[in-house]
Write a protein that binds this DNA or RNA. Structure first.
Lengths: 127, 127
DNA sequence: TGTACCTATTTGCTTTAACGGATATGAGCA
DNA sequence: TGCTCATATCCGTTAAAGCAAATAGGTACA
């Protein structure tokens, strides 16, 4: 709801056709860990434990990331006993990732040089 | 470079086909302001001042956002005297945004309910 | 019923990055 | 040359969201 009409800001629709929502949608892929997980699940179905082994982060964090991807509609959850299996079902997801990869690849140089959004690159300092 | 081979973390490629880069690429679209700007520039070319008027944020912030979009390859800059004109040139950008919009729309409900990534929604508190 | 296992959630901490405001750079015009 | 306007960059503050560790919730199997 985020009431903007209270102020003189009515000319800022705040939700011009759902920009906030789409940004949130993109944000799910803006994290290297979630993107790695998503690509892992593009190929085939995996359990949470599989994913933990794959990305090497804490189980709780991975579970949370997977839930986020599921909430956003990127992956689907299938429960089987005490296991939770995740995988990508919508083929458009692969298209989206592929398209982004293609665009990013064509701008690799400038992208790598962009300092305005350090964005989870230099943070992995081993010190 | 982010040397990971120093540790026993060699099994985490850190750059398995550029995940970090693609995540950074997506991060540019993960912000409502930049996404709004990008869609503004999809239609036609605009100066920084135009963009400031459009999004209603400080001039410095908008300039920074535009530079970021340019660095990431989403928009292209054309200088004309003291003016800076930005616009989208690569048609794949529109495809990417369209595809994301389509996917997000089909999951609007779950997406809106996703609390794991508050993601720039409720932040616009008016004081 | 109790125990081991898998997954989800909570808590506290730390880093990232968006913001406004101030300031610097540089083009055009008087 | 000096002034104005358009854009870019710097800085301090604040909120968002990453992480590990601890814990809670359920399922299966003895």
């Amino acid at each position: 709801m985020t009431s903007t009409s209270d102020l003189g800001l009515a000319f800022l629709p705040e939700t011009d056709s759902g920009v906030e929502m789409v940004a949130k949608f993109f944000r799910a892929l803006a994290d290297p860990t979630r993107l790695r997980l998503l690509e892992f699940l593009l190929a085939e179905e995996h359990t949470v434990s599989d994913c933990v082994g794959f990305v090497g982060l804490s189980q709780g964090r991975v579970s949370s990331h997977l839930a986020c991807l599921a909430d956003c509609g990127y992956v689907q959850l299938r429960r089987e006993g005490r296991y939770a299996h995740y995988k990508v079902v919508d083929p458009r997801v692969a298209d989206l990732v592929m398209l982004a990869r293609s665009l990013a690849a064509d701008n690799a140089a400038a992208l790598a040089a962009c300092v305005r959004i350090p964005a989870a690159s230099e943070q992995r300092e081993v010190q």
